[in-house]
């Protein structure tokens, strides 16, 4: 997927042929890690992966057809913090090779046609601005039009600050789009990956008919540091993880990355008409 000329980071693992797992500190050969879909073979830590890597893992080879690949943010606030948002976008586009924080399209999972959206943690932490909102809404509409299941792989820090309220209202837009899919009787499966938080968690991520999560994924609304500041104590071990959300009844199943494709296919079959 990567060309040698553009050493893009598609996986959030350290550089080098041998990698020390950031979780368990074991030395892993890079080839092995890639074979294991970027899950540490020693401790099972699921590394963050780019949208393209994920699409390659989930879809039948060569079947994915992208929608709206050229939508870009128009910087509605003309925003500047330490650098201008326009400049930040240019830098992130160059580093990630993507134009935005989500890829949507049509693909096939073990021969089953689906509409799929995959968020990209390498693009401003998968944050949702107007383009992400538009693509999620468009994907839901396409799922309605083609009577296909919608599979959404979420991975986001929340609404994108640099688009201010334009970002916040995307929560309402995406939730309303999912409501229409629901009314049309469409199947909506969410796969929560690390991290799924704040404005994305509190909109289209937590509206799945079926909600799957990858092991250990951070899932929640408020940031852990914000909560620690409120309650003035350290948070318990495992707080806001996929396992925590399963325990409290907000996730249906925790699925290892290597089983994700077959589990999705199974659920699509159970919900098939």
């Amino acid at each position: 997927m990567e060309s040698p000329a553009s050493p893009r980071r598609n996986v959030e693992v350290p550089e080098g042929l041998w990698i020390r797992c950031t979780k368990c500190a074991q030395m892993i050969y890079r080839g092995i890690l890639e074979e294991e879909l970027n899950v540490c073979p020693e401790c099972g830590h699921h590394y963050r992966i780019s949208a393209r890597t994920r699409i390659g893992q989930l879809n039948d080879p060569g079947t994915f057809e992208e929608f709206l690949p050229d939508l870009e943010s128009s910087d509605p606030l003309e925003f500047t913090d330490r650098i201008s948002y326009k400049q930040r976008l240019e830098e992130v586009k160059a580093a990630s090779g993507e134009k935005e924080a989500i890829v949507v399209g049509k693909g096939f999972i073990k021969g089953r046609p689906v509409i799929m959206g995959v968020m990209n943690p390498m693009f401003i932490m998968g944050s949702m601005g107007a383009v992400v909102g538009e693509k999620v809404a468009a994907a839901a509409e396409r799922a309605i039009a083609d009577s296909l299941p919608l599979v959404m792989v979420t991975c986001s820090g929340g609404a994108r600050m640099m688009e201010g309220m334009v970002s916040l209202v995307q929560m309402a837009k995406t939730a309303a789009a999912i409501a229409r899919l629901d009314e049309a009787g469409g199947l909506y499966i969410v796969v929560m990956t690390d991290p799924t938080t704040a404005g994305v968690a509190a909109s289209f991520a937590f509206l799945g008919d079926v909600t799957l999560a990858e092991p250990g994924a951070l899932i929640g609304f408020a940031g852990p540091r914000v909560i620690e500041n409120t309650i003035k104590t350290r948070l318990p071990e495992g707080f806001q993880t996929a396992e925590f959300m399963l325990e409290h009844g907000y996730v249906d199943r925790i699925v290892h990355r290597k089983n994700l494709r077959s589990e999705l296919a199974k659920i699509i079959d159970y919900c098939g008409k």
Binding site: D182, A201, A202, F221, I227, Q240, G249, Y250
Partner: peptide
């Protein structure tokens, strides 16, 4: 409210469902 109880009782899910 950013707190432990709010997260345990699914604040994100509650807001998401309201929006929908």
């Amino acid at each position: 409210y950013p707190g432990v109880g709010a997260e345990e009782r699914g604040i994100a899910a509650a807001i998401a469902v309201n929006l929908m």
